Computed example of a mutant assay.
Amino acid sequence: MGEKNGYLPFPKSFKTICIHHTKEPKRETCKETMAPIVTSNICRLESAGGPSQVIKGRLLNPTRSVLENLIAKLCKTKYALTYASGIGAIAAVFSLLKSGDHLLCNDDIYGGTSKTLIQVCPNFGICTSFVDLTDLKSIPEYIRRNTKLIWTENPTNPTLEVMDLCGLSKVAHEHKLMLAVDNTFLSPYLQRPAELGVDLVVNSVTKYMNGHSDVIMGVVCTSRDNLYERLKFIQQRHFNHGSSTV
């Protein structure tokens, strides 16, 4: 992967991708250089019973699809799914779990995440162990038969602890667990966890990824087909995925 001094190189053509990827002019309209904002909440089928990519704005919106494809490209993943907020994206990942499941979470974590795990998830029978995930050797001690997920941030909020994502990925996959990382602080420009073996990458687009303090949004990125299908179902039917005008 072109490592130098333990670091991956900065992504080539990052700015070019931001400007051009999925933003080619629409030949059937006015050749606009920016993706148009689609506000219609329902779209016309070409034929009765025929295939359609867009039916209702809640299920799929062309404007949102452009954004999701761009973020996936920047994060080096196959898929990206946007949500109405960062905590909405986080909650979508936790919704992959079911009653009786257990997860491991770093003991230094964003307040909104910890409150969700402590005050909301137990209502659905999901329990959490808060542990020091910087100590890779001790992690197996906390893994239970019903453990399904390891969740962390890198670096953490607020004390900026740094995780060994390659090491965490190895531990998670040895025990057949999903590994999810909140990448909000570094953004895909400075860190691309999927390249280090992470299954689910979360960003609060509200923060550095947007950079203008005028958007509230979250995104979950993955290259695993099975996780994408489950998250897509959750996005379309259980969580508001944000305004199509964003």
Rank of each mutant, 00 (worst) to 15 (best):
F14M: 10
I17E: 06
I17G: 04
C18Y: 14
H21I: 06
R27Y: 03
T39E: 15
T39Y: 10
C43H: 05
A48P: 13
G49T: 06
G50F: 00
G57Y: 07
R58D: 15
L60G: 13
T63P: 05
V66T: 05
L67C: 08
K73S: 08
L74K: 04
Y83E: 02
Y83N: 02
A89R: 00
A91Y: 10
A92R: 01
A92C: 03
A92D: 03
F94T: 03
G100S: 04
C105G: 00
D107V: 06
D108M: 09
T113H: 14
K115V: 12
L117W: 03
Q119C: 13
V120W: 13
V120G: 13
C127K: 15
T128R: 01
D132F: 12
K137Q: 02
I143A: 01
R144Q: 05
L149W: 00
C166D: 15
V171W: 02
L179H: 05
L179I: 07
D182P: 05
P188V: 11
L190K: 10
L200K: 07
V205F: 09
T206A: 12
Y208F: 13
Y208I: 14
D214N: 11
M217E: 09
C221N: 07
T222H: 07
S223G: 13
L227D: 01
Y228M: 07
Q235S: 11
H238W: 03
F239L: 14
H241P: 12
S243E: 09
S243N: 07
S243M: 09
T245C: 07
